[in-house]
Amino acid sequence: MASEDRTKEILEGLKIAVKDFEEEEAAKWAKTALEEGVDPFMATMEGLAEGMISAGDLYNQKEYFVPELLMCSDALHAGLEVLKPAIEASGRQSEVKGSIVLGVVEGDVHDIGKNLVKIMFEVAGWTVHDLGKDVPLAKFVEEQVRTDSDVVGLSALMTTSMLGMPEVIRKLKEKNPNVRILLGGAPINPEVAEKYGADGYAKTAGTAVDEAIHLLKMLREEEMGKQKG
């Protein structure tokens, strides 16, 4: 087992690797974590995820932009690839595990935001059902019913593909009043999200990414709260 100081050092290494978008470093620190007996779930949540949250802060300060965030998520992914099998083997499960259906609505093919949201939920230990892009609206309802998912995330970067959203939200809530709905995309604002009956929104390609990080932060806090409680 790594000492407390060494564990801190390893978590910091993972965090910095993600923040500085160093894919190889992230994988290397992840291997070190496993070799030295750091809990892989902790390495993910307090190392990799922390790094992505720092990247989100830099995005808000306009020091990072979409390419930087994408590269951070590449490093995050590289670390996660190493840690994931160990998390699964340990039988240790996320306490707030859930399941999400994600997709970009028909009429839109921009999926950067959706892909980043996907990786955030994966980091947090959720099961992600990714429908891809240009997805007919009926498919979201079908997939939610099939998988009994807690959350459905719909993304549309263009105004031109947003208009079918109210219908799908209505159908989803009709089938399952408890399902939470996230909307993302440039034309979405709080009024539109509220009008459409959504539970959360992200307003631009960039803030979709930011929102994804924000979600991760919430999931992470919820997780740590549960573990302490």
């Binding site: 009429g107 240009d134 593909s161 208009l163």
Partner: peptide, 9 residues
């Protein structure tokens, strides 16, 4: 589609 959807790639 019969409603408003613009062509995409």
């Amino acid at each position: 589609r019969t409603d408003v959807v613009y062509p995409t790639i």
